[in-house]
């Protein structure tokens, strides 16, 4: 007998996934694929709300579950998007799935970005590599609610143009006059790169129109990036509690039970994955 409660939205069992159908998928880079999914149960699409910066446990029956950041914005309801890098056995199996295949989803989980607090503020969004996945959610949310925010800076770093996620989307954003879209690659091996060559930190000197007291920064990228980006943000005099980071840990349950993601007394899955720079300074294991 097959139990249908999992698609009817019965949330009393946090381990029970609900079904989603893959609507669209395409490659962002040689090893990162974009997935767009929607709930199999049409009415669920209307009630599924999440905050930018939250994540979901995505599962493929028979293979397992993996925590994935949500890349889409709640301001465009109905569809949920993920960026998946082909590295583990779960992500590997997702790469074998096609449009209309079903996957299991639990969540959304995590605290997400404090979007109510961010309203009326200037934003500096710094993303490197796969860090674009969770921060794209915040970026699109801010652009969709453009009047709620002050200046918005997007600083994006990639190793080279081939490794950049959402290339087309971010190129187009360079044309917008309500966003300072600054893109950089460490090395341009194509000869056609239209933006800056250099580390993401080299983009900071172009930030001019902000009042640090009312500016929030959001960072996500590879571990090596944080130290240098944090230095730049401190140079801009942005208060530590206004510097936010989307950090990740190995997770198994996503609901604060399994113990994998604990950093000191904090559960990354419940109290994170968004932490402030103060949190990082007070919780040694978090990134350093």
């Amino acid at each position: 007998m097959i139990d249908n409660s999992c698609i009817a939205g019965d949330r009393s069992n946090p381990f029970l996934p609900e079904m989603m159908r893959i609507v669209r998928r395409f490659d962002l880079t040689s090893d990162v694929r974009f997935f767009q999914v929607r709930p199999t149960e049409a009415s669920r699409a209307l009630t599924l709300y999440y905050k930018p910066g939250t994540f979901m446990m995505v599962s493929n029956p028979g293979v397992g579950e993996a925590p994935l950041s949500i890349s889409s914005t709640p301001s465009r309801p109905g569809l949920i998007e993920f960026c998946v890098r082909n590295v583990g056995h779960v992500t590997n199996s997702l790469f074998r799935m096609k449009e209309n295949d079903e996957i299991g989803i639990r969540g959304p989980y995590g605290n997400g970005f404090p979007i109510e607090t961010l309203k009326g503020r200037d934003l500096i969004i710094v993303m490197g590599g796969l860090g674009a996945a969770p921060l794209r959610s915040l970026l699109l949310y801010a652009l969709d609610n453009r009047d709620d925010f002050g200046e918005i800076y997007l600083l994006h770093g990639a190793k080279n143009p081939h490794e950049m996620l959402f290339r087309k989307e971010f190129y187009d954003m360079m044309e917008r006059d309500d966003l300072h879209c600054m893109l950089s690659v460490d090395k341009d091996d194509t000869g056609k790169w239209p933006a800056k060559v250099g580390l993401v930190t080299s983009l900071f000197k172009e930030i001019k129109h902000i009042d640090p007291k009312t500016t929030h920064a959001a960072i996500c990228g590879p571990p090596v990036m944080y130290r240098f980006v944090l230095q730049e943000l401190l140079k801009l005099k942005i208060p530590k509690h206004q510097i936010l980071m989307n950090l990740e840990r190995r997770m198994k349950c996503g609901v604060g039970k399994c113990g994998h993601c604990v950093v000191r007394e904090v559960y990354t899955c419940l109290d994170g994955p968004v932490f402030s720079y103060w949190d990082v300074l007070n919780m040694k294991e978090l990134i350093y």
Binding site: D3, N13, F15, P61, G62, E102
Partner: peptide, 17 residues
């Protein structure tokens, strides 16, 4: 066992409380 499923079935999850 938290959940059981039929590998070939369209809906896969069944609670195993």
């Amino acid at each position: 066992i938290l959940l059981t499923y039929q590998p070939s079935a369209e809906l896969f999850c069944e609670e195993n409380l």
